[in-house]
Amino acid sequence: MRSVSLFMGLTMTLAVAAGLWAAPPARAEEAQAQTQAVCDVPESLLQSESALPKVADIIKGGRPLDILVIGSRSSSIGASEDFAYPARLQAALREQLPSAMAVNVSVELQARKSADEVVKDLPALLAAKRPALVIWQTGTVDAMRSVDPDDFRGAVDDGIAAMRSAGADVVLMNLQYSPRTETMISVPPYLDNMRAVAQEHDVPLFDRFAIMRQWNDNGDFDLFNSSHGIELAKRVHDCIGRALSKFVIGAAHPAPQQQN
């Protein structure tokens, strides 16, 4: 089962579609307000007690911010990578940070790899990319394979250690939420272990699972419907990218004058 197929198999509710996809120019402001409402995330899910000191230092100095996203297929939308959440993250950060500051987000897809398999490739990858921040999206493949949760926790622990040894800040991102697979895959052990490792290492955890579940429960996105819809995938990725940008900036704690 592919993560990206879950996104591409989702259909937008009629209420959302009516407000977002057919708005004439005269209703641009209304459409923008609806978009913001759809992407609404409680502040509690966008705040972290853990900090990103290297990112904070780079923002303070106005230096280029290089971010590496390590993820599975759910980090992409096939041929529409400009609409995938890493690209939307980059766009949102460029909007929120000083205009003279360069922000570059690169993506390393690790399709069908468990956390342990990803960790084995980290030293060479980090040496080549030298990112200031690594956003590690993990847990999906391990949950699908029913990897022992303790082994998964050990792999995430080793991955964070490797990233920090390379001089990078780390943000963990957990699994995406899908009501269609919730009864087929046991995700709580992997969510719990990621939360525990994040607390142990004082690393921010972006709770994508909880954010997407709230959007589904609120009716913002119909994540259960299995009919194909690339436009819904784009909307979800855009919302994830913007939420993630707020999360990163919040964890870096920049001064007001260091934001646009």
Rank of each mutant, 00 (worst) to 15 (best):
A87V: 00
K54T: 13
L46A: 07
K129F: 07
G61V: 04
P25A: 00
D116Q: 11
S99D: 13
F7S: 01
I70R: 02
A198C: 06
K120L: 13
V134T: 07
L244W: 05
L232R: 01
K113Y: 08
A196I: 08
A252Y: 07
I59S: 07
L20P: 09
D220G: 01
R94P: 02
A56F: 09
L191K: 11
S3G: 14
A92I: 02
H253D: 05
G62R: 14
H201M: 09
R180D: 06
G159Q: 04
E182V: 12
F247L: 07
G241P: 05
A56W: 08
D40A: 14
D82A: 15
I230F: 05
A198F: 03
E200Y: 05
N193H: 12
D192S: 12
S76I: 00
R180Y: 10
S227V: 10
G219L: 07
E43Q: 12
M173D: 09
M12H: 02
S72M: 05
E29A: 13
L45M: 12
A79R: 02
E117V: 01
G62H: 11
V141M: 12
G229L: 00
A102H: 13
F224V: 00
M194S: 10
S186F: 06
I240N: 02
F247N: 03
I58L: 14
V4S: 05
L126N: 03
S245I: 00
D151T: 14
A102R: 15
A128Q: 15
L45R: 11
Y85V: 01
R2F: 01
L20C: 09
A17P: 02
A31M: 03
G154V: 05
L52Y: 06
N260V: 10
T140V: 14
H201S: 09
L10H: 03
N260D: 11
Q34I: 11
P98W: 08
P53R: 05
K129M: 08
A18P: 01
E95H: 04
V171S: 04
D82P: 06
L109I: 06
A128S: 15
A23P: 08
I67H: 03
N260F: 10
L205P: 04
G154I: 02
L10R: 11
G61F: 08
I70H: 01
A26M: 00
V107M: 03
C239V: 00
P149S: 03
R235N: 01
S5Q: 13
A252G: 09
L232H: 05
V187L: 13
N225R: 14
L126Y: 06
R112I: 00
D82E: 15
G167L: 12
F83H: 10
G159S: 09
S72H: 09
S72I: 02
Q32R: 00
I70M: 06
V16L: 03
D220K: 06
M1T: 10
D157Y: 10
I230A: 09
L6T: 10
D116V: 08
D40S: 14
R242L: 00
R164V: 06
V170R: 02
I58C: 11
Q90N: 14
H237I: 06
S50K: 03
R213T: 08
A132D: 10
G61E: 09
P189R: 15
K60M: 14
S76P: 01
N104A: 00
F221H: 03
I135L: 14
S227L: 13
